[in-house]
Write a protein that binds this DNA or RNA. Structure first.
Length: 574
RNA sequence: CGGGGCGUAGCGCAGUCUGGUAGCGCGGCUGGUUUGGGACCAGCAGGUCGCAGGUUCGAAUCCUGUCGCCCCGACCA
């Protein structure tokens, strides 16, 4: 029977008009292709339609309800679909389930919710400290940039012009139909663009700041929002407006600017690996992937659990391109007027997307302790009011005791969740949010001066832990979680990394249906490489700075056969 | 910006083919029973069916237009 004919039997009155629990709707379940995808089906395990299944269904397919069970059966995992079933959908569900963000009323823009924003604040705080340690100062530049500024650097225009939001008016007026419209009389003489990045406006400012070699270097960072009118958006990974940090520096010499570029890349790499527990490859972008207007672009590249690469941070050596365009000149020690050398570097809220896709599992987020909004949550368990009083008092005391402990130079962050919610539901909320440690305390624990501790990085149910031991070792425990997350991510990446020396192997590795991963290959940029990469939906991510896999000296380009000095990492990417 | 899909209660959807004035699940609230675990029973609240025209005695349903969102491509942190 075809889907279309059967569909009518099970939708409509039969289903909408209430299919009683206990009835089975005789959808042809024996056929491959008749199954519940799970993704949008909220019946979960109660749904009679189950995989195996591997084709598309027209729409929601949760028809047919299994016979009643004595106890409700919950899905095995908190997030549905699982990573294996539908990775992109899983990602969206994790963002939602972990309470990180939600879509807003504005197209392509998201609302970052407190739990997600707390992650960002932790990212900010740590990076900001590192920036200051490396001599940078924060400043703030305008959100609006005169359109003419963007025109000054040719490649820069080309790179950003097609995704700019433009402000053309400064007043609204009634449109005569009960609404509003931009007042024609209030048209701006020169349109303003909402910054997609600030090289131009900051460059123009720097031109005024720099007169003499004595003014250099200028080392500035700004935390800001930027807007890039993307056609397709995904929470955290690519939104129309996003939050980021952009560093902009000016130097007297090429060498100094290049050193700055590398130094900040190192800061990013160190942050990614140590704070986020996300292993990254530092490398230089190929010409095709370079920032518009840059002489060279460096990036940190991470591999997500679906084996696609994510550019997690960039650092650009801008040469004198922007100095020429913006007239950033200075008088040198010898009295000559010289153009300065500039750099820029940035990371964005995209890091949170990377964090999710590196660590989260089918039960939701797993926050690495160093960035977790809370290191531990205490869940009191009680029945009667007397128990409640005793347990809560114990938990309060435990909370302050834990807060006096330190992890990675910061006080341990603890939450006590005493909301009037059922225990199971409450526990799962925190699992989905990815709190590293769950500390459950009931009357029996209070009596025994003990706790029951679950680690989010393990599948185990947790273990009884004496209070004193928990308190004394919490720093160590968090550290071991942090390390375990990094090791797991590192292992996944290494398992997906291969050296490839023939085009046939390259094609096989990235063939449809293959898991893919990171391929280290000799290359030369040219039409052959471009065509093949486009065909396989692969891009050269970067040329690693440090010798990594396949560091066997010069070789031959996979695509053209020309001699090649270095290998690049190829992967599908976000 | 091309191809496809979808706008009905806070969320997920049925109802549209074959027009008769709106329903289910979850969530919310209230009461009760439970509870070392993502509970159960009962009751209540909640919708000008995206918007604007048209056809009709009558439109969620048919026609035209329009806006928005999602997916898949092309482009990108």
């Amino acid at each position: 029977m075809s889907w279309e004919t059967k569909r009518r039997d099970i939708t409509g009155a039969a289903f909408g008009g209430r299919l009683q629990t206990g009835e089975w709707e005789p959808l042809d379940l024996t056929k491959a292709g008749s199954a519940c995808r799970g993704g949008r089906c909220r019946l979960g395990q109660r749904c009679a339609i189950n995989p195996p299944y591997d084709g598309p269904l027209p729409r929601h397919a949760a028809f047919g309800i299994a016979p009643p069970r004595s106890r409700p059966i919950m899905p095995k995992t908190a997030i549905s679909p699982s990573r294996a079933e539908n990775y992109p959908e899983w990602y969206q569900q994790v963002v939602k389930a972990a309470d990180l963000a939600e879509t807003s009323d504005v197209r392509g823009c998201m609302v970052i919710k407190p739990w997600g924003y707390a992650l960002w604040e932790n990212i900010q705080r740590r990076l900001d400290t590192r920036f200051k340690e490396t001599g940078h100062e924060n400043a703030y530049f305008p959100l609006f940039i005169p359109m003419s500024f963007l025109e000054k650097e040719a490649e820069h225009v080309e790179g950003f012009a097609k995704e700019c939001a433009v402000v053309t008016h400064h007043r609204l007026e009634p449109d005569g139909a009960g609404g509003l419209r931009p007042a024609p009389s209030a048209k701006l003489e020169e349109p303003l663009i909402v910054r997609p990045t600030s090289e131009t406006i900051i460059g123009a400012t720097f031109a005024r700041w720099v007169q003499s070699y004595r003014d250099l270097p200028i080392l500035i960072n700004q935390w800001a929002n930027v807007v890039r009118w993307e056609l397709r958006t995904r929470m955290f990974l690519r939104t129309t407006e996003f939050l980021w940090q952009e560093g902009h520096t000016v130097h007297a010499t090429r060498a100094e600017a290049e050193e700055e570029t590398r130094k900040m890349l190192e800061v990013y790499a160190d942050f990614a690996e140590n704070a986020m527990a996300m292993p990254v490859i530092c490398g230089e972008k190929t010409a095709g992937e370079r920032f518009p207007g840059a002489v060279s672009t460096y990036s940190i590249e991470a591999m997500m659990q679906d084996r696609k690469a994510l550019q997690a941070g960039t650092s650009h050596f801008l040469g004198q391109n922007f100095a020429h365009a913006q007239e950033i000149k200075f008088q040198s020690q010898s009295g000559d007027i010289e153009y300065a050398w500039t750099t820029s570097w940035g990371v964005s809220t995209r890091l949170i997307g990377g964090l999710i896709m590196t660590h989260a599992d089918d039960d939701g987020l797993i926050a690495p302790p160093k960035l977790a909004p809370a290191h531990a949550v205490i869940l009191p368990i009680y029945k009667s009011d007397e128990e409640r009083a005793a347990v809560l008092a114990y938990c309060q005391a435990l909370k302050s005791e834990l807060e006096q402990q330190h992890y990675d130079g910061e006080a341990v962050r603890v939450r006590l969740d005493d909301r009037d919610l059922r225990g199971g539901e409450k526990k799962w909320q925190w699992v989905k949010r990815g709190v590293p440690l769950r500390i459950e305390v009931g009357p029996r624990d209070v009596a025994g001066d003990s706790t029951f501790v679950g680690r989010r990085d393990s599948d185990g149910k947790g273990a009884a832990t004496p209070r004193a031991e928990l308190v004394a070792q919490i720093g160590q425990t968090l550290d071991s979680i942090q390390q375990a997350l990094f090791d797991r991510a590192r292992r996944a990446r290494d398992e997906a990394s291969v050296v490839i020396d023939t085009l046939a192997d390259f094609e096989a590795f990235f063939a449809e249906g293959q898991p893919g991963g990171l391929a280290y290959c000799h290359f030369t940029e040219g039409p052959e490489m471009e065509a093949k990469c486009k065909e396989l939906k692969v891009t050269p991510r970067c040329v690693p700075l440090q010798p990594l896999l396949g560091d066997d000296g010069p070789g031959k380009c996979l695509f053209s056969g020309a001699p090649s000095q270095r290998r690049a990492v190829f992967a599908r990417s976000y």
